[in-house]
């Protein structure tokens, strides 16, 4: 186990600075894209692209290519475009298409791994990610992709927002929805493909979904949702890096577990669920003095009855006020 001092001292080394930068960038790129994934309900598209990237990485291992990034990018982007193309007429349900992609790429990945002469630690690195071993080239690409993603999302923010709200309305308004859809899918693929080596193929999609879902619990304001999502994303990935360094825990899983923890807290605190206020109210109600209700008086004639009843209500009211 390393100590906190080791952690701080490590900052003087290039690899550590690189790793920290990577953690921050992964936090930013995934949770920014994630906001639109959550709002558009495209969660499993992220998962399918992640698995195709995994298949790409497995193929690279099988072919003995030392840097699998190119193949990963190729698989990821073609899956993204494929999903977009098959789904463009929305003749088949989203779920079905995505499910088929998802399963078949997992099958392909396992097939490639099965052909490997031995189960190497590289496989595990792709599956679970090792942020501490991230390469310089990977970090450079991460910087580039984060820039591309952030700039394009901010330039096209209002259009993506409108498509998320009501796609049909966006088309009727004359927005180039189809083109933007493809573009967005490619952005998802880029985010996944550069993050996969740090947090792993299995967990990368959690990073797309959880910080944004956490932010979604806490606000009704779109801009705040973006800011919160990025904050949670960066916090989780830096935290994951920290624990991974100190305790030698697998970085990917710690990142995802931290993000999940934040989600649970924000779900409980969410103004949209009113869990806290409901519990608080129950608590309050139990201790509130309940006035005794006197039995209803007998009613005689119609008019007389109503008068008597009103009088009765007034008395109860007075009693309430005294308490």
């Amino acid at each position: 186990m390393a100590t906190l001092e080791d952690f701080i001292q490590a900052f003087q080394y290039d690899w550590m600075q690189r790793t920290v930068l990577a953690a921050v960038l992964i936090g930013v790129i995934c949770s920014l894209i994630g906001v639109f994934i959550i709002l558009r309900g495209m969660v499993f598209i992220g998962e399918a692209i992640a698995h195709s990237a995994f298949a790409g990485a497995a193929l690279a291992l099988l072919l003995g290519i030392s840097d699998p990034l190119l193949l990963v990018l190729f698989f990821g982007i073609s899956t993204a475009l494929g999903i977009g193309y098959i789904n463009k007429d929305e003749k088949v349900e989203d779920d079905v298409i995505v499910g088929i992609f998802f399963a078949s790429f997992m099958g392909l990945a396992i097939f490639f791994i099965g052909l490997l002469p031995s189960y190497t630690s590289n496989v595990q690195a792709i599956l679970f990610g090792r942020i501490l071993l991230i390469t310089k080239r990977n970090v450079n690409l991460l910087i580039l992709f984060t820039l591309i993603t952030t700039v394009s999302i901010f330039l096209l923010k209002k259009e993506f927002f409108m498509i998320s709200f009501d796609k049909e309305l966006a088309i009727a308004s004359g927005l180039p929805v189809t083109a933007m859809n493809y573009f967005f899918l490619v952005l998802i693929a880029l985010a996944i493909d550069v993050s996969i080596f740090a947090i792993g193929a299995i967990l990368v999609f959690a990073m797309l979904v959880i910080p944004a879902a956490t932010a979604y619990q806490l606000t009704y304001d779109f801009n705040k949702m973006i800011v919160l999502s990025i904050t949670f994303g960066v916090f989780s990935s830096l935290g994951g890096l920290f624990f991974s360094f100190i305790y030698d825990w697998p970085s990917g899983s710690v990142i995802v577990l931290l993000a999940t923890f934040l989600f649970v807290v924000s779900y409980i605190l969410s103004p949209k669920r009113k869990l806290v206020s409901t519990v608080f109210l129950l608590f309050k109600r139990n201790f509130k003095h309940v006035p005794e209700i006197s039995p209803l008086p007998h009613f005689h004639g119609e008019n007389q009855g109503i008068e008597e009843f009103k009088e009765h209500l007034r008395e109860i009211q007075k009693g309430d006020e005294k308490n």
Partner: peptide
């Protein structure tokens, strides 16, 4: 459009949705 089930939790305020009408007029970017 015809009333359909929008998510009750969608993070948009009234003015955000109304402003969407201006998006295509203003143009991309």
């Amino acid at each position: 459009p015809q009333l359909k089930g929008y998510s009750k939790e969608f993070p948009a305020k009234v003015k955000d949705v109304v402003s969407m009408g201006r998006y295509p007029i203003r143009g991309l970017f």
